[in-house]
Design a protein around this nucleic acid. Structure first.
Lengths: 189, 189
DNA sequence: AGTGATTAGTCACTTTATTGACTACCATGG
DNA sequence: CCATGGTAGTCAATAAAGTGACTAATCACT
């Protein structure tokens, strides 16, 4: 069960509504998990039934009421239990990699275009993560924050997301350039 | 539909049996996809029914017979079509990241242990990928191979896998060291 | 007064992925 | 001779994830 614990972990630092949670998960909470709103509402309902999170109604006059959720003691215990279980390693599972794998047998123009698109997307995420990190550490240096700040968990996962996107960007640009060069060489022949 | 195209891409370069395919996918085909044997057998059967791959029986006297699959013209066309469709970006989806996200609220000893375990696993994959890359490029340099070799697709995806695992390794070691330092500081207080 | 975007959430359905058990055959080591 | 392990594959069941369509209210424009 993956989403379950991702939701619990996301709710540790702040009380959130399903909707806010959905926004955080939309493009990946600091790149550590991704899910659509429907999944989150469903998961929250399940977690509440099982007593791992507690919701409270917040009446809003200017917009629809919402329910804010926080992790209960039971929920924290469940997370504790989860942390102690061994997890299998993760893999990149990406359509784009499949496309590059097939690059020698299919039209490379499309692949090149998508690599560049992805690189641009990575650029955007790199900026986003950079901003998040700056906001988290405030005026402290990274060294200083990581040593003495409280709540470094989200900072660390964000660092991983940042490095991942840098890796994506570099690999995408390099691969695109290479495929383009090869295509040019082929047509010249 | 993800697995479908991953299987087609994997079969482009060589004819494989379900079993061989399963081994290749077991720990991630050059880190570009992962699946269990049962899924692969099921997917191969489906692909064959739809005419995207063709299987042929190979009788072996010393061990059980096997069926080798290759991509058909129709299958190649399907891949071509797939390559032209836009894919959404990928995310890391990893239990370990969830655990680190929660690190400020749970027992860090477990998290540290798992980070180090993962780092060791990453080391192993780095060596594995290094070997795969050397074998693919033969006696040529990487530059030379990427420019003039045929079938650079698998090489490129392997490079991505390598960079990913290096990222994993570095992040895991750094995070583990940091959490350990913080724990030490806390107990001294 | 109407359009579209944002907030907030729900229902129904399908596709994918994971788990566990199972068949068979051969080779090797003790 | 019997256990172990590798090759080759299948079946059944469940759990998890993803898709599409939908309600309903408010706000900012035009």
């Amino acid at each position: 069960m993956g989403l379950r614990h991702a939701v619990l972990a996301a709710l540790l630092d702040e009380e959130l509504s399903g909707y806010q949670l959905a926004k955080a998960f939309d493009l990946g909470v600091a790149n550590f998990w991704h899910a659509l709103p429907q999944q989150l509402y469903a998961e929250l309902a399940k977690l509440e039934r099982e007593g791992l999170v507690a919701g409270r109604e917040v009446v809003q006059d200017t917009r629809p009421n919402k329910r804010l959720f926080k992790v209960t003691e039971t929920g924290l215990a469940e997370l504790e239990r989860f942390v102690a279980t061994a997890g299998r390693p993760s893999f990149i599972r990406d359509d784009l990699l499949v496309k590059v794998q097939a690059a020698d047998h299919v039209d490379t123009d499309e692949v090149i275009a998508q690599l560049l698109e992805r690189a641009a997307f990575a650029d955007a995420k790199i900026e986003l993560f950079g901003g998040l990190l700056r906001r988290m550490r405030g005026d402290r240096s990274e060294e200083e924050f990581l040593r003495h700040g409280d709540r470094v968990g989200p900072y660390l996962t964000c660092l991983r997301g940042l490095a991942f996107e840098r890796g994506n960007r570099d690999w995408c640009r390099r691969s695109a350039a290479l495929l383009r060069e090869r295509r040019a060489a082929r047509t010249r022949r």
